[in-house]
Design a protein around this nucleic acid. Structure first.
Lengths: 320, 320
DNA sequence: CTGTTAGCGCTTTCAT
DNA sequence: ATGAAAGCGCTAACAG
């Protein structure tokens, strides 16, 4: 009287055709012996591992942990484990290179959040179920992103209301997808409202922020009075540059960060930020991937969870 | 002429008893068809998955990514994949609760870097191969840690040389193992040298750092003139508190961080830090775990890679 | 209701 | 030097 019956009981077979006494007995013995079904054997049979691989750039940027957290939690809820694969920030491999995880059936699908650049992707992951997180891949239907234009609008609404007419956007390299979307949105919205916007692309590091801020300050024409900064790391550089050049925040320059982090509240001038729904992005991506794995409808996803403007002290009235 | 032969060829069977022509042919076909052995089936047979689980607290603290990076890279070099398991910082589960990953044979072993507190651990993981990373577990032989006393000494040497006699240590809760080791070392070394040391335990957050710094400043007796701070997050709070109380850094107070991060160079007063060998810690932990999985000698490990004092501007001569 | 059987894709004796 | 066969631990289809 065995193994298959046990299997049925432990998996709660829908056709619950097991005598209650046996049922209880099996459960009891299993619990008592601390029995664990071997996930490998099960996966081998069912052709489904119950695991995803999440490819992320290992950056010193707290936003990724929020994203990870959202994804890990949702995956756990839905019975999947997630293995994080590092993408070294320097020499980034094409997303393609993680396909092997699915081919070896170590993973059922791929969550891809590399620092992928536009046009950089060979269309190679297509065979394996995958979803691009916070980036758009080569094909429609596999992308889940946040409302970057909405974030930009939130920044512009806030500073325009305080009288700013000349703004700047300090952000990462132009070919990074998120950056591209923010920049495009900024240009469009500013054009509509008759604001001028300076866009400064630079490395997503403290050093990069410092350099871009210098560049902005040295440009004589139409000095911006408000600027938004793409990442927390850049923000430190930007603030340092302003400090060094004695540009007072917010009196001469208003500053908004697109990365929210608690440390912002403790800086010399607490910095206002736009808090994006990163955890929701992570969980939405997992849901989307599960849908794909189960053969569901492919479609691009815009995470609609609300963003919020976290008002601190780095934004003020436009000078003069 | 089949499957077993193919297996032999692809695994480079030591008893290389395959005719060269067949050998080449198999290799060619395999490459051409993009054949990937199914890791599951192999694992099932060999009773070894080629995967580790790394249990990490998902904190907004960049030190973890360095540790992760070290571990992931080393694991990849040695043919293992690593899945990161989140340990929610609030309600931390006992390390025991990840044993199931090994029992289900999803992982060959566990790297445990939870915010484990002293005495909190049921001795439950013992069955599964595991290694405590940057923390000491209940049993000897499974711990790999860094030289925290060395870091403390580096701080004390540096400030003592500049004439400081009263120092403080602002760090996490007393029952966190790393904190415990730093505090013990600080007390011992200070006693030896006739320095006084104030120890302030607090939450490992900006808020915690702020609170502890206030507490330190409000204590009338023997004001410290130099303090070390356990984590980057706390550091922001500490600096904010000093700023608010008009305590000049480094003129009235020297500050050293035990977390190194590039952003420290861009703060209003660039902060000196002790840079710990975190990547080496990660890779050493992986090596140790592989040793255990392969049934090798168990022993505690102290990562000996050099620490360095990153001198910036937050440390000065003792006042008066 | 429950036991028997086959097979997931691979490695590993054991024969040839 | 290679093929045949068994089996890792599980699930699913089929008998009884």
């Amino acid at each position: 009287m065995h193994t298959s019956t046990v299997s049925r009981v432990l998996n709660g077979d829908p056709a619950q055709s097991v005598r209650p006494e046996i049922y209880q007995q099996i459960l009891a013995v299993a619990r008592q012996q601390g029995y664990r079904p071997n996930a490998l054997a099960r996966a081998l049979k069912q052709r489904r591992v119950g695991a995803f691989a999440f490819v992320i750039p290992l950056l010193r940027n707290p936003i990724w942990v929020r994203l990870q957290r959202g994804a890990l939690q949702r995956a756990a809820e839905r019975g999947f484990v997630v293995m994080i694969m590092e993408e070294p920030d320097d020499d980034a491999k094409p997303p393609d290179s993680y396909r092997y995880l699915v081919e070896e059936s170590r993973a059922d699908g791929l969550l891809i959040a590399t620092s992928l650049r536009i046009g950089e992707h060979a269309d190679g992951v297509s065979i394996a179920p995958h979803v691009y997180v916070n980036r758009r891949g080569p094909r429609r239907g596999n992308n889940v992103v946040m409302d970057e234009p909405g974030a930009v609008r939130m920044f512009l609404d806030h500073v325009a209301e305080l009288g700013h007419r000349n703004v700047a956007l300090i952000d990462g390299p132009a070919d990074v997808d998120t950056v591209h979307r923010r920049v495009t949105a900024a240009r469009r919205i500013c054009a509509q409202r008759g604001l001028t916007v300076a866009v400064l692309h630079t490395a997503a590091t403290e050093e990069g922020g410092w350099e871009a801020a210098q560049r902005m300050l040295n440009n004589r024409a139409r000095q911006p009075t408000a600027c938004a900064v793409g990442s927390l790391n850049q923000l430190f550089g930007v603030l340092a540059a302003f400090r060094q050049s004695s540009v007072a925040v917010p009196d001469s320059m208003s500053v908004v960060s697109f990365d929210e982090d608690e440390c912002l509240a403790f800086l010399e001038v607490p910095v206002t930020s736009v808090a994006m729904p990163l955890a929701e992005l992570g969980s939405a991506a997992v849901d989307a991937l599960i849908t794909r794995v189960e053969g569901g409808q492919e479609r691009d996803l815009l995470v609609r969870a609300p963003m919020t403007l976290v008002r601190r002290n780095s934004v003020g009235l436009a000078p003069r």
